[in-house]
Design a protein around this nucleic acid. Structure first.
Lengths: 228, 228
DNA sequence: TTGTGGTGTATGGTATACCAGAATCCAGCA
DNA sequence: TGCTGGATTCTGGTATACCATACACCACAA
């Protein structure tokens, strides 16, 4: 009896065309190295609507959302441009990230379950042994996962929401190398200290460690990354 | 020769219909006590477009933006609803505010000009003498101005941008009384201490004072405000 | 009286046609 | 050869008509 029913169309349905256009565009921008020399930074509504096979209306709504999020900039009668963040803007984003995650750490010492904190070890230990893994780019993702985990422990969805937006912009900077290399070893030490502060439920120390850790990244980017 | 040209329509021009609809809607929502008992929480695209005298298209774009900012919620084939924030969401917003402004205070100790810090006294002293003014609602606005001033000193536009959004939502809670009353006197003392920490360029102290000040407000709201 | 099924209606979603301004290109003149 | 001006074209902005679905209401049967 169970198989007599025809399960139709679990393809990509359920979402509005706007939502699908939004996802597709966001992914496309993410997978594109917008900081490369001759990158195509201009979009065309009509061209996109043809390529997606939808009309301009839902596409425009998706673009308007991306505009508000700061991924693209819509200029009346000029065009739609993929936004290249300036170095100053990147630094500001890292600063906000530091502010929010350090607060998250503080909250985590109050609200996180002990076993949830213990699970952080998994994310840290995975790379503390493996010299090679640290340099494969895997670490970059794992690093973000660690930070997102701390934010999750804070039980503050708004912090998670805002930082997710920030992380997206960071990912768009293809030069992830910044986050890796020699910094990885130091980073892992920092992470271990952070976990230990959380386990000790030491709010001030956890907050300070997270803040200093992230602001160090900020200074590193400030010194060694060239943009603009 | 100068007056021979007819300067037409400096009314509300220059902005797209979308932008004007957005402003008008935002203002309308702000000036409406959405937490009152029988508040009209549902909007209708066609009705609004008629009343504004524009078509649905720009209006929808404005509404979509308000949706993304969390002021309204658009539900497919159901309607558009003005969002009432839950108490938990309000508390989270204050938490994020605390995180960002305390970071702003830290940055201010590094980047703010001395005379700019000195100007904070104006905002504080204005109410320290005047017992009456503290209870007129004026203080609520001046209070926000003080906090915005500190954020301005940080020279971090992103922090300003995010907190502005938060402040808007706070304002929408008409029960501003929370921010005033007996809290005003205590608040002014806090503010004076914050200014003094900034003047001393004491980053840690400034950050801590701002954080504790705002988190105290959070606890106050947690205890004494009933929503939902 | 109560439950159920079908139909009507209201609402947001989408497609499309047209508008207005900005940029570009090229003819024509100095 | 270089510059100027106007026409054309390309772009996002706006208006409007139509589509699909969630919900309500009502007729009808148990």
């Amino acid at each position: 009896m169970a198989d007599t029913q025809l399960k139709i169309a679990p393809i990509g349905e359920g979402l509005s065309l706007k939502a699908r256009a939004y996802d597709a565009l966001k992914l496309a921008i993410l997978n594109m190295n917008i900081y490369a020399e001759g990158a195509q930074l201009r979009l065309d509504e009509r061209d996109l609507s043809q390529r997606f096979g939808v009309s301009r209306t839902p596409l425009r709504e998706a673009l308007a959302q991306l505009d508000q999020e700061g991924l693209v900039k819509i200029v009346a009668r000029r065009g739609i441009f993929i936004v290249r963040k300036t170095k100053a803007e990147i630094l500001d984003m890292i600063t906000v990230w530091a502010a929010l995650e350090s607060m998250a750490a503080r909250l985590a010492t109050q609200h996180a379950e002990t076993d949830a904190i213990a699970r952080l070890h998994t994310l840290v230990d995975q790379f503390s042994q493996d010299e090679a893994a640290r340099n494969t780019g895997e670490y970059s993702e794992a690093n973000i996962k660690f930070h997102q985990a701390i934010i999750g422990l804070s039980k503050c969805p708004l912090i998670a929401e805002i930082t997710n937006g920030l992380f997206f912009h960071m990912r768009a900077i293809r030069q992830r190398t910044i986050f890796e290399q020699d910094r990885a070893r130091r980073s892992i030490v920092d992470h271990k200290e952070i976990v230990s502060a959380l386990e000790a439920r030491d709010a001030d120390r956890a907050e300070r460690l997270v803040r200093e850790h992230t602001l160090r990244l900020r200074d590193h980017v400030d010194c060694f990354v060239e943009l603009d």
